[in-house]
Amino acid sequence: MKKIIFLFLLLSMTIAGACADQATNHQAHDNKNDTSVRQSNTDTSMTQTEALQQIKEQIHVNVPIKMPTALPIAKGSFLTATTRTDDDLVEIIFYESKENMPINDIRLKNSATVIGRLLVKQYKSAEGASTQIAFDNFSQNGGQKIDLGYNIKGYQDAGAGSLWTGWNEGRWSIASHTRIDNPEAGVKLAKQAVEYLESHMLPIPKQYGMAQLDVYQSGNLIVWQDEKLVYTLDSIKDPLKALEIATAFYP
């Protein structure tokens, strides 16, 4: 009987030791995985930073443009671009690629996905640049009032089958677009944009900025003035991603 008890205790101690070793190995494996995830995130961030720097180095004009700090791309994808410069104009088309492709690679148009386009044009004067901004003061334009949350009032205006919900934030005029047969979608998008901008800042325009956000992902447009320069973001399908890219220019 004593021998059986002794063997039982010995077996219990062996199993306990094995479990402890297994738990230690699991913990070490989990820690390794956590480190790998953190390293992967850091590598992705570094790759975007390097890509944006390389894109800027391809711009050979005397236009002191600003670049976004990051762009929304899928995990495991790479940021790249094509660039075009003129005397007073810079065009950058940002791409998301499954492989790390060089800037201005001729394969991009056929093997990568467009994230959006940035145009930066320099005018002879700030007054000339300001004429390019379609700024609206919606409270003065009138229209049906609507509560967009966060103490922001929107104003709705319909015409030619379209319904616009517009509001102002600082020196920005922003409007969501939908069709008159789908009014709820326009209000929903406007409220989503207002909520997003509560925690994200659009670039400070000098003097004004405007944004058109399209429910049907076909006409998103964000334009702002920086003295003699006019920045234009377009070719971005998702209206909230358009805002995300624009806010990446702040400050």
Rank of each mutant, 00 (worst) to 15 (best):
M1A: 03
I4T: 14
L7N: 13
L11D: 05
S12Q: 10
I15T: 10
A18T: 11
A20R: 13
A20Q: 13
D21F: 15
Q22V: 08
A23M: 15
T24Q: 15
H26L: 12
H29R: 12
D30P: 03
D30V: 11
N33H: 13
N33L: 14
N33E: 14
D34C: 01
S36N: 12
S40I: 01
N41M: 10
N41A: 09
T42V: 09
D43L: 14
S45I: 11
E50W: 04
A51T: 02
L52D: 02
L52Y: 09
I55G: 00
K56L: 12
K56R: 14
E57G: 00
Q58K: 10
I59F: 01
I59S: 00
P64D: 06
P64M: 06
K66C: 00
T69I: 07
L71N: 00
L71F: 03
I73G: 00
K75T: 10
K75R: 09
A81C: 05
T82H: 02
T83G: 02
D87Q: 11
D88W: 09
D88R: 11
I92K: 08
F94G: 02
E96D: 08
K98I: 06
N100W: 04
P102F: 07
I103D: 02
R107G: 04
L108G: 01
L108C: 03
S111G: 02
S111T: 10
T113N: 13
T113K: 15
L118Q: 08
Y123K: 01
Y123P: 05
K124M: 12
G128L: 15
A129N: 09
S130C: 09
D136W: 06
N137C: 06
N137P: 04
F138Q: 04
F138E: 02
G142N: 08
G142A: 07
Q144A: 10
K145R: 13
K145P: 02
L148S: 05
G149M: 05
N151K: 14
N151Q: 15
N151T: 12
K153S: 13
Y155A: 03
Y155H: 07
Q156I: 06
A158P: 05
L163A: 01
L163G: 00
E169C: 00
E169H: 04
W172R: 05
S173F: 02
R179H: 07
I180H: 03
N182Y: 10
G186L: 04
G186W: 04
L189N: 03
A190P: 01
K191G: 00
A193S: 13
Y196V: 07
Y196S: 07
L197S: 04
E198Y: 12
M201Q: 12
I204N: 11
I204V: 12
M210V: 10
D214W: 11
Q217Y: 12
Q217I: 07
I222Q: 07
Q225F: 08
Q225A: 03
V230Q: 04
L233C: 08
K237F: 09
D238T: 03
L240F: 10
K241A: 11
A242D: 06
A242K: 07
A246H: 03
A246K: 06
F249E: 06
F249I: 03
Y250E: 05
P251A: 09
P251L: 12
